[in-house]
Simulated assay, not measured.
Amino acid sequence: MSTDFQTGREALGARLNELRAETGLNGKDFAALLGWQRSKVSRLQNGKQTPSHSDLDAWAAAAGRPDLAGELKGRLSGLETHYRSWRRQLSDGHRPRQEQGIAETTATRTIRGVEVARIPGLFQTADYARHTFEANSEFRQITKDTDDAVRARIRRQEALYEPGKLFRFLIWESALHARTGPRSVQAAQLDRLLSLVGLDTVELGIVPLGAELRRAPSHGFWIYDRRLVIVETISTEMWLDDDDSICLYERAWDWLAESAVYGHQAQRLISRVRASLDTA
């Protein structure tokens, strides 16, 4: 978990602890007043658990300060502006997050991206996207809205053909080998990548597994112009808009770009992986 996020969560926990202490109740009695397990009160106070809005409403009321619920929720919203849990973002399925992606892409002229374990959503075929969404729904145990999510993802790809936009993506070769579905789905996906090489709005670089790297790619990220970086972790999506973060991720992108191959070299590498599917 991000250090910045954890620091903010601990600060919110300290504020909750302060309000609880003002009641004169210990953690056990305060938990009983709320009808919660004592462990939950402890986790919230110590910044070990992120509270929900309803948790904060209940805490403020139990502390006799319902007027402070807005302050507490404001602190939480400050955390979630930059650190958005997948649990909350995908509570109604994948489509709402895909719609956000369309909005961000529409507002951006140049997107630079790095993917290390999968094909970028902007380049995915419908079948590849379908298998990705279905697997993620099962993993996260969320509402399945696969068809709506796939339609939204494909609709976002219309931006690839808009004059004036530029999509500069680096894909680590491992992502070409990582299968999210049947061999036929992977083959069609690689064919799709081959068709994008040379498109005037797309600059596609493949980082070979044997390339010398100034810095190994640890995770994927997308840079929207110079205003926003979006980074995915297994539990959280980070939306970073401060100058330091943007400069750091731009440097990471630039360093990795030095090791990538483009044009005909990229096509040959993709074609080699594609051919291996026919002989496997």
Rank of each mutant, 00 (worst) to 15 (best):
L190G: 01
R214M: 12
I223L: 15
R168E: 14
H264C: 07
V207N: 08
C247M: 14
V229F: 01
L269K: 04
V273A: 02
L199C: 13
T236L: 02
R179G: 11
R272N: 15
G181T: 06
Y262C: 09
I270N: 09
D243F: 02
L196F: 09
Q267Y: 10
A211S: 15
A178R: 15
S218E: 09
S195H: 13
R226L: 05
A187R: 15
L194D: 07
R226T: 08
S271G: 10
V202M: 08
L196I: 01
F221T: 02
L204N: 01
M238S: 04
I230G: 01
S218Y: 04
G181F: 03
L194W: 05
D225R: 05
W172T: 01
E258I: 01
A211W: 11
S195K: 13
T233Q: 03
A257V: 07
R251Y: 10
F167R: 02
L176Q: 05
F169V: 01
H264Q: 14
E173C: 01
S218Q: 07
C247W: 11
Q186R: 08
Y249P: 03
V185E: 12
D254K: 10
S276D: 12
I171Q: 00
A275L: 12
L228H: 04
Q189A: 07
A211Q: 13
E258L: 06
I223V: 13
D225L: 02
S271Q: 12
S218G: 08
R268Q: 15
L209A: 10
I171Y: 00
I171P: 00
V261P: 02
L256R: 04
G205H: 04
S245P: 08
T233G: 04
Q265C: 13
E212T: 13
V229D: 02
A216F: 09
Q186K: 09
I270A: 07
I223E: 11
V185Q: 13
L228M: 10
L170Q: 04
V202P: 00
L204M: 07
A275W: 06
R274P: 03
F169S: 00
G181D: 06
I234Q: 12
L213K: 09
W239N: 06
S195C: 12
Q186I: 02
W253C: 08
R268H: 14
A216V: 11
S235I: 09
V261T: 06
R179E: 14
E203M: 12
S184A: 15
H264K: 14
S245K: 06
L199Y: 11
R274L: 10
P208G: 07
R214F: 07
V207E: 08
A175H: 00
Y249N: 02
W239G: 00
S195N: 15
L166V: 09
L194Y: 05
W172V: 02
L209C: 10
